[in-house]
Design a protein around this nucleic acid. Sequence first.
DNA 1: GGCCAGTGTCTTTTT
DNA 2: GACACTGGCC
Length: 754
Amino acid sequence: MAGDDLTPSQRAAVEHYEGPLLVLAGPGSGKTRVITRRIARLVDRGVSPWEILAITFTNKAAREMAERVERLLPGRRMWVTTFHKFCARLLRERGEAVGLQPNFSIFDTSDQQRLLKQVLHDEDIDATHFPPNKIGWQISQVKNELITPETFKARFEERVGNHMEAVVARVYPKYQQRLIEANAVDFDDLLVHVALLLQEQDDLRAEWDQRFRYILVDEYQDTNRAQYQIVAALSQINANLCATGDPDQSIYGWRGAQIENILRFERDFPSVAVIRLEENFRSTPEILRTADALIAHNKQRKVKVLRTDNPSGPEVELRLFLNGREEAEGIAADIRRQVEDGDRRWSDFAVFYRVNALSRSLETAMARARVPYQVAAGVAFYERSEVKDLIGYLRIIDNHRDRMAFLRVVNTPPRGIGKTTVDKLMKWADSASVPLLDAARCADQIPGLSKRAVTALQQFAGLIDEFAAKSYGPVAETLVEIVSRTRYGHDAALQSEEDLQKKSNVDELISAARHYDEVGGDESSLGGFLETASLAQDLDGIETDLGAVTLMTLHAAKGLEFPCVYIIGVEQNLIPHERSLRNYEPKEIEEERRLLFVGITRAEQHLVMTHTCRRDVHGRELSTIPSDFLNEMPYTNVDCTRGSGSWSPEEESQEVDMDDRLAAPSPKFAALKSILPRLTTGAALEAGTTRPADVPLGFRVGMTVRHPRYGLGTVIEMSDGYARNRTVRVEFTDDGRQESFIASKCPLQPVGLR
DNA sequence: GGCCAGTGTCTTTTT
DNA sequence: GACACTGGCC
């Protein structure tokens, strides 16, 4: 089966049969290929596909790997999934041992924080002094170390810790108890419950160990303790664990990943075969030289050589711009020019940044330059409030005990169940140890509630019961039913722009459900859909051959590759991030260096890093300092601060309104910036529903504009004020109606002269 | 109970 | 700048 197109070390990895295997794979060394080929080879040798478990880090990687396996082994079903999904499956099967029903809910970060806030309140702990997000962070760290509430408490009592630990010791057990009462888990629990189950129940461990005889774990350097425990526990009887990874690409230390897992691997499985894949098939020698020089500055690493036979390409460049706006426009123009020259396609390009906040300027610039783009980030689809509301309904229907879902939808849309009522309800329900929905059902027994509140609560409970009774069909139907019985269906007439946007999100959710129903077939269920929704990742919607430029964080870029890569904001406090600089922690700086290394090594042919003289930080524009990392690698300097850059000069002269941009930022500048009409989203682009907008700098009275709903019109008035307050009044040609819009949020587009 | 406006707080990366 | 929360008002 193994062809002749493999290098000797690749071949060795593919041919490795039984026993533990560690593949240390440098960037672009054909790792995914090796994994898929090895799977095919195993099956070739008579291993049943269902005995193979392949675990990846992202849904996207899982999907791609499944596709590649499918190509090699048509029709064979095997487990290719992410850690979190895998654990969710196991818990649905066997979660009763930790007190979970199969229909448990998965709480996201905001559910987690709201729940923590309640616990803090119950415990009489001041939430301003101990903010829920910090507590949540602490609990997450502790969970990743597989420390249970009991252990933590015991440990804390042994040796008195600080205030924070004292609070965590009190809050963590209550929080955990609340989760179980709600038949729910948080993200960490998915891993922790499974790891502990395997630790405590040997028969179960043995059963699953036998079930998954061959386990392959990708991106092994990013596993945390819980994940390590899980794969190790499943590799006792059948120690056919194959881990692939690259310590130099470990970028998730901040969420508990331990590079040491690779060292521990060799200790725990002394018979391990170690194979290094060092030849790079992805990048030019120029790019590799830069990457190699950078990563060589890390002290804690296993030295690895990066070599390639690829032909030489253009020099790695570092471009300097005046500010973030010029940086973004320069890149947009640069990309547009290359595509227009016929050298490149849109999808050849990716732009990476350290923090999501930097995507805004890029989106603006891309839209203005009419460069099609897709973004992996920001307010992900499932984070939109209207989507979360509907998901909330589905959750409470599927799991009556889901406390956070109940609280989210009980008064959405408003049905006269306010804070006072909910507080009384919670108090009563908690003292009676009854789920909120059950309490609502018998609200008439709760003392102190007004007649109206009782009716409203009981009606709400009845509504949910009705939905639940009908929820066994396709998920999309359930959703449609919910939409039509709640606000989302009713105010279809005369809506604001925001409502229209919401409506389209609702429609998108319904089509996602429909898609799920179709693909899942008989196996689809409400719970399954919810799981998919809960474990969705920003990267999920990204298609690399979509015909669009891809924008994403450096973290999201892991595992991907693009012919041309831009990495923006290579500045001190950004890369390395200020938080890693605050306390002098070499470990953290090294992780930042690895992050940049990951970004650099995504590039196949051309790499451009950029930095600026001044940059908006938290709203204020400040002078910047070039990243320390820039002293550690070779590249060619390009100064783009005087129009000498790669974008056309006309681009600049068109921006009459911006002639003050060289001066200190003025209120006018801020205002113009903040009234930009809404940008095309990646999702919309992908769906083909919108074309990248020609986004103007601002509206002027007398300007002709087009509105997707009302057609052509003229701007007749603009309010004073900045930012959100600013509105535009438009008279529409069609019927003479006048409408006001929030300038920053409406889809008005200027017509005619640019 | 619901809505608005004003204020205060916090800003990394993700499942 | 964005968002959560509060307080005041209807």
